[in-house]
Simulated scan of single mutants.
Amino acid sequence: MKHFKGLIFCTYFLNILAAMNGSVEASKHFKVGDHIGWQQPSTNDTAVYSQWATSKRFHVGDSLSFEYQNDSVLVVEKWDYYHCNTNKPISFFNDGKTVINLDRHGLFYFISGAPDHCNRGQKLLIRVMGFHQRAESPPSIANPPEDGITPGPHPSSGLIVSVTLSSVFVALIVTVVTLVCCAP
Rank of each mutant, 00 (worst) to 15 (best):
G106S: 01
H29I: 14
H83M: 11
D147K: 05
Y12D: 02
F4C: 07
T86N: 08
L17K: 03
T46W: 04
N119R: 11
V75S: 02
A171I: 09
I126G: 05
G33R: 10
T46H: 06
G148D: 07
S23V: 10
A19V: 10
A18W: 04
P89V: 07
R104Y: 02
R120F: 03
N119C: 02
T164A: 10
F13T: 07
R120V: 00
S166G: 00
S50C: 07
G158R: 02
C181W: 10
H105G: 00
L64K: 01
V32W: 02
L14P: 03
V60K: 11
G113N: 02
F110G: 01
F131Q: 08
L7P: 00
S65A: 05
K78L: 01
V177L: 15
V73I: 05
Y82M: 03
V161R: 06
F9E: 08
P151C: 03
E67Y: 08
G33V: 12
T175P: 00
H35G: 01
I8A: 14
V99W: 01
L17E: 07
I141C: 02
G113S: 02
S42W: 06
D45A: 14
A142Q: 09
S140R: 06
M20P: 00
L172F: 13
R134N: 09
V60I: 15
T150R: 13
K31L: 09
R127H: 14
F58G: 08
N87F: 04
W79L: 13
V76A: 01
A19Y: 09
K31C: 01
M129P: 00
D45F: 14
P41D: 09
D45S: 14
W38E: 09
N21L: 04
A26D: 08
S63D: 14
N143C: 06
S157H: 05
P153S: 10
G158P: 01
D45L: 08
I16D: 02
Q39S: 09
F9C: 12
L165K: 09
H29E: 13
L179D: 11
S137R: 11
L165Y: 09
V170R: 10
S63F: 02
V24I: 13
R120I: 00
P41S: 11
P153M: 08
A135E: 12
N44T: 13
S65N: 11
M129S: 14
N44P: 00
Q69A: 13
E146A: 13
L7R: 05
V48K: 08
P41I: 07
H35P: 00
N143H: 12
S23G: 15
D62N: 10
G121Q: 10
P144L: 04
S63L: 03
G37W: 03
T54Y: 12
Y109V: 04
A47D: 14
S157Y: 02
M129Y: 13
S27Y: 11
S65G: 04
N85W: 04
G148M: 06
I160P: 00
P144T: 04
V163R: 09
V75M: 07
L7T: 11
T11F: 12
N70H: 09
M1L: 05
L172Q: 10
N21A: 14
A135R: 11
G6S: 12
A142P: 00
D45N: 15
S72T: 05
R57Q: 13
A114T: 10
E67Q: 13
L159R: 06
